[in-house]
Design a protein around this nucleic acid. Structure first.
Lengths: 215, 215
DNA sequence: AATGACACGTGACAC
DNA sequence: TGTGTCACGTGTCAT
């Protein structure tokens, strides 16, 4: 059922939108000292008309924004103004949180998975009973790297339990889970050996042949 | 400079908030058939009071939401209602777009970088003049894999220009940029050889020693 | 002076 | 029935 107000709003032009009775009411609330002439009356009538029309434009603008919000909000059940605003606030907060999380995840993944741009070497005891050591290294991808790492591990009698590696843009990142050497001295030796490996300069002109597939 | 309206709103209790003149005005606009008794007058007065107070609460609620929006919106210069709504709409749209993009990026990265869960082999001509071929393969990470791939490449006299690889959770993904063999027959042979390599079952009990560091 | 923003009370309508 | 929502015109303040 369409309301009378809606009919007026949609069908009638602006000129016929204001009832003349309105302006007489205005005269009552203006306690005038002088008797109002026709000129002042018409001026005030005109001013009031301008005023109400301006206010109407303002309402129209705001209500347009509400309409837009109603269209872009997901899961909007109640469509009254307060509910629209409430849902908007919830939505904005949720979106801001989501964006923040996604960006954080992106950063973390970048930090955790990607080979670092600077050489990096990190050894740490993995909290377990078997005295496992986790080694993280990041360096330039160069020929003989795997062999060099293997030699370094052999030099401390270390056994590799697990390897995760990634190569991107000529940089390599490697995570090793190591077992076999005892005490701190082995750790220090391994660290020294690996440090030498990752800092060893590669020969120039070998890009694209850095990993040797031919044994 | 604080306005009179603001002073009233903040300092005065609700009871003194309504001017008695309001209700006489209301009587004028109610064209009554019967002479209003004191009872009906007071009833209407009370009803009008309840009404205006309810409306006031509604306004209060809505304005509260505006205040909240003003606090959570970044880069808000104009703080009037229309501007708040406008900025809100822009913000919601931007956030929705950002979330969509971030999620897409996440999916794409996952699809493009991570080793696939099922074995995969794809050969395609890279659009260049040198007849380059891009090979993408994904399979279980197993001992001798690099040697096997190397043998397969050697069998078609292919030269490796560039390698990108990633190992995650026992699966390996490898992108090779290859040059050297001529025509379709080499391509078919390489594909067949690589297919055998990636589908070759690994020996059991070798997890953690899949990449041989000891030559 | 003129324009814009706001709160208010009010009549109308919906459930 | 009343209870809540809306559009409207108006008074007021600020620019």
């Amino acid at each position: 059922m369409i309301s009378l107000q809606q009919l007026e709003k949609e069908a009638k032009p602006i000129q016929t939108y204001y009832k003349s009775a309105t302006y007489s009411k205005q005269e009552v609330s203006y306690p005038e000292r002088d008797i109002p002439t026709d000129a002042t009356f018409h001026y005030k009538e005109l001013a009031a008309k301008k005023h109400s029309e301006a206010e109407r434009r303002r309402r129209l603008r705001i209500n347009g924004q509400y309409a837009t919000l109603r269209t872009i909000l997901p899961n909007l059940v109640k469509t009254d103004k307060a509910s629209v605003l409430e849902e908007t606030i919830k939505n904005v907060r949720e979106l801001q949180k989501t964006v923040k999380e996604l960006k954080t995840v992106g950063r973390d993944r970048h930090k955790c998975e990607f080979p670092n741009e600077v050489n990096e070497l990190n050894l740490s005891y993995s909290n377990g009973d078997g005295g496992l050591v986790k080694a993280t290294l990041s360096c330039e991808d160069k020929p003989g790297l795997l062999s060099d790492i293997g030699r370094a591990l052999r030099s401390v009698k270390a056994k590799v339990l697990k390897v995760e590696m990634a190569t991107v843009g000529g940089r390599i990142k490697c995570e090793l889970l190591i077992q076999g050497f005892k005490g701190n001295e082995g750790m220090v030796m391994l660290k020294r050996a690996l440090k030498i490996v990752i800092d060893k300069p590669s020969l120039p002109g070998n890009y694209g042949k850095k990993i040797c597939f031919y044994k």
